[in-house]
């Protein structure tokens, strides 16, 4: 079974590497077969990764999202799923490349870690934990997509390249990614709050990760309103998407690396 898991993990990684390479080629040459092949490779990689995730779920008896290997593996799966969602809905081809690049970076760091599945400790043995973590990473993946669209919007505005999608479409996808990310992150905080209440007796914890997660929610809540204000539409919204993702990155990685927190997932 470990050999099969390794095969699936490396197969998915190789597919994503080829997909990113083909998308980069597509940016330069604009050949239809290039983006089609790239898309097929993303689909293949996502299929293999999904199979691996399902296999590990069956072996463990719970969705394995409890240590760094597992959370990074799951986050990269969410990023690939988000990319596929946007690609299937809007056919933007290489425009979501940043998300695939993030997926690839995460995947590359996963390969250096031990894939062994740890036993589930009683504190994490609750569906609330699973729902909290899955909605959190799904939300983060959409915020990454919003960041990608924000950067492309600014690039298109300043450079005006025919290689990039129209500003109107980039703005639309950016707003959609922020909205979906906010919805998922709201569910994440709800499940996390209920779990904290049954585990520690309070639904809001003042540990720094808890505070920053609330700030991320507040920030993207503000962004969901800002899209209705003329001054913040377009360029302003793109800048906010970039700033928001900086908050997300600090909450997910920065706090664990730079500061100390008693959050169970830090």
């Amino acid at each position: 079974m470990p050999e099969l898991q390794h095969g699936l993990i490396y197969g998915a990684f190789f597919s994503y590497v080829v997909a990113v390479f083909l998308y980069v080629c597509h940016f330069r040459r604009r050949l239809t077969w290039l983006w089609r092949s790239a898309f097929v490779m993303v689909l293949l990689g996502f299929g293999l990764q999904t199979l691996c995730l399902a296999l590990r779920w069956i072996i463990a008896g719970y969705l394995p999202i409890t240590n760094l290997f597992n959370t990074q593996f799951f986050f990269s799966w969410c990023l690939a799923a988000t990319y596929l969602y946007v690609e299937l809905r809007y056919r933007i081809h290489g425009a979501g490349l940043f998300v695939m690049f993030c997926c690839l970076l995460l995947f590359a760091s996963v390969l250096t870690r031990d894939p062994a599945i740890p036993p589930l400790i009683p504190a994490l043995d609750t569906p609330l934990f699973t729902l909290h973590v899955t909605t959190s990473f799904a939300g983060y993946a959409f915020f990454a997509m919003a960041f990608s669209m924000g950067v492309l919007y600014l690039a298109q505005r300043w450079v005006g390249s025919s290689l990039l999608p129209e500003l109107k479409l980039l703005r639309k996808i950016n707003e959609e990614a922020v909205f979906l990310g906010f919805c998922l992150f709201t569910l994440c905080l709800i499940f996390g709050g209920i779990w904290a209440y049954v585990a520690w007796g309070y639904y809001f914890s003042w540990n720094i990760k808890g505070v920053w997660s609330s700030l991320v929610w507040l920030f993207y809540g503000g962004m969901c309103h800002a899209k209705f204000v003329r001054r913040w539409q377009g360029t302003g919204y793109a800048i906010l998407s970039i700033a928001g993702f900086a908050l997300v990155l600090f909450t997910y990685i920065g706090i664990g690396v730079l500061l100390s927190s008693n959050h169970p997932l830090t």
Binding site: I208, L215, L218, G222, H225, V229, S261
Partner: peptide, 29 residues
Amino acid sequence: LKLAIVLASCATLMAVGGSLLMPANPRVF
């Protein structure tokens, strides 16, 4: 709607700055 944005932004900025004091002052926080 603009008041909501201003309040959310001010609360976010206030807590971003303040929360960075938390890990260095565990006795207080």
